[in-house]
Design a binder for these strands. Structure first.
Lengths: 366, 366
DNA sequence: AGCGTTTCTGCAATCGTTTGCAGTCTATCG
DNA sequence: CGATAGACTGCAAACGATTGCAGAAACGCT
């Protein structure tokens, strides 16, 4: 069917081994034959068979990326980044969708190593730690976005504490002191970490943490809507809401529209993670960018290095954090008439009576 | 490293060939040995090496899906559907992102056949027809969403003429007669077909086709915004806009918001293709659903059948259409006070003076 | 018992590469 | 001119499975 190495060798009247050496450039052939063979190979349209090669070398030039889904915008850009980077390195990406389901994850993982993938970037569910650990002996693995606590795998994480801190501080600087937080489940790392960043910013500014303003849960848009309603129905509703959960944003926006609440005039809204349409929404929605692009790039970097390192390595660092970034658009507004704030960024004022207030702020119970 | 067939054979004190036959279930082994071997294989944790198997059989159990990107919601659901279906059939999906770029597409295609994929579902750019045709000899291919006119490959298409017709008719039934259309480039199949459906619905209702209401282009949100502005700035602006282009919707919505135009009170808006947030937008946006899910399913069906058929086949049918569906939400409104329309669906009225008007309607020049 | 069938098993070749080892050639040096 | 190193090249064995062919065992039948 297709042209094999043997055909090339025959056409060039050399042995298969010579042909192989010439084309792979192992350097053990004379300059002349090498050139001659590459020419002939090109003329014949020879393409090496990765399967045969893989059988011998134990490599497949396949790298898998296992994510939960593709509806999440972050996963989309990550997939695109990973694909592009890998392709440039001569690998094919094997994109798998695990649906955040441990069983399916486990299934997929075994299929993948069956296929002798050369590397794996995975957003772990967290329930297959032992399996992952075992696989890591055979193939370089990098965890992305989530950590699997049962393993000591190299992990690339978003800096959620910092991101939440940044976002909250932004709102504080705009004069908000009652800031609602809609955040993810507290048994996920990101849920915990985003809450902690929020709390830190508040404390630093000497603002007491009000439990009633903090709502956590396993979010789908519906729950986002519910939480938003709860916040707005409070006797003293917040002047700003920080939706620190991707899925919840949709629901929150809907409630806000239903109630004819004007953003940012009546309420400031800040979201975590970007979506393509946030920029086109009116008002354009300010966000904390978790740096999906950077995360993916770093994960690929790490993976490639481990793949080069060939099993040795394990050079100490196991966890990388990628900085978050505040993207100011039009959904947050200054509410204090007090400081005219002509001059650049308002400074954060951690000194102002922070100590006295700190004791007053009870830790959030969610 | 991992346990091979030889190990299993040794443990069972049979030859490799017997082991192979027993485990693959070719039926040429005795019941007893078969059971014994499966047991031993399980105990030893034997997993067949797909690479070695592939070398011999020429199959890889890999099926590729090549789409333009993952930001398009339709592609997301297609990817998820295809992955799920294939997985159930014991295949791994190789998801590739071609960026609608012919060169990258060509590249990817060769890599894929190098890897001896067993099948391919591709959204063609349309510029690599000859290559595709050549590849089709080696591997079953099904085109999705777009046709590549240079080939006679089996193709699964959305029924764009019908979808556009359905949408336009819906607006007409609501009493609109000046309906703006923002549509894709006319050198793409979908662009042409959606326009034709729009025109057909108009003609059928005896409404003259007004060229100034039809805007086409290669869309990004920005252009969608521009078109929307143009329509609204018309001396006699439309009472409804049908955005028949995925990307353009964002821009249009933005313009509408900027100008404080109330939907559906001041303007009805209908879009093509669903996006997760349309449902959560307020007002929820009515759409014509192109049936991405069905498209993907059908494509998989066709592909699997061709893969079974093993090169023969070519049973005549080359083009499949998947019906579009109108999803009424809250962005379109009745504007005629005239017909109370109490009774179910208003009938389409093709009879009413259609002949006389037909001649009056000039064909759209875009 | 002898023979033909049927059923199972094993040998060995094969898929297309890579790679250790040994052999061949050329050139260089004494 | 002969020896010898050095540079290429070819042979053949892998890699881990599948599969045609032929031999062996078991079985039924006359």
């Amino acid at each position: 069917m297709s042209v094999t190495l043997k055909d090339v060798a025959q056409a060039a009247r050399v042995s298969v081994s010579t042909a192989s050496r010439a084309l792979t450039g192992t350097g053990l052939t004379s300059e002349r034959t090498q050139q001659r063979l590459t020419r002939i190979a090109r003329e014949l349209g020879y393409r090496p068979n990765p399967i045969a090669r893989g059988l011998k070398t134990g490599q497949s030039r396949l790298v898998a990326l296992l994510v939960h889904n593709l509806t999440n915008a972050s996963f989309q850009v990550m997939a695109e980044v990973v694909q592009a980077r890998l392709k440039a390195m001569g690998y094919q990406m094997l994109l798998c969708i695990g649906g955040d389901d441990p069983e399916q994850e486990s299934d997929t993982l075994t299929t993948l190593v069956d296929h002798r993938i050369d590397g794996l970037i995975v957003v772990p569910t967290g329930k297959n730690g032992t399996q992952l650990k075992a696989l890591a002996k055979d193939v370089p693995i990098v965890c992305l976005v989530r950590r699997d606590d049962a393993t000591d795998l190299e992990t690339v994480l978003a800096d959620d504490p910092q991101g939440a801190y940044l976002g909250t501080r932004h709102l504080i600087e705009l004069g908000h002191s009652r800031i609602g937080l809609i955040v993810g489940r507290q048994d996920t790392t990101s849920g915990r970490e985003r809450l902690s960043g929020y709390v830190r910013a508040l404390r630093e500014a000497g603002i007491p943490v009000d439990d009633t303003l903090i709502l956590a849960g396993h979010f789908v848009p519906e729950t986002g809507a519910t939480c938003c309603r709860t916040l707005l129905d409070l006797p003293r509703p917040p002047s700003a809401i920080f939706v620190a959960n991707h899925e919840a944003t949709l629901g929150a926006l809907r409630v806000i529209a239903e109630r004819n609440i004007a953003i940012p005039d009546d309420l400031s809204l800040l979201c975590y993670e970007d979506m393509p349409w946030f920029e086109w929404h009116r008002p354009a929605i300010s966000i904390v960018d978790n740096g999906a692009r950077d995360l993916a790039n770093l994960a690929v970097d790490r993976l490639l290095q481990r793949m080069d390192a060939k099993g040795n390595g394990s050079d100490g660092v196991r966890e990388y954090r990628v900085g978050a970034r505040l993207v100011k658009r039009d959904s947050c507004r200054q509410i204090d008439a007090a400081p005219p704030a002509r001059s650049g960024k308002p400074r954060s004022s951690p000194s102002r009576s922070s100590a006295s207030k700190l004791s007053a702020s009870k830790s959030a119970k969610v």
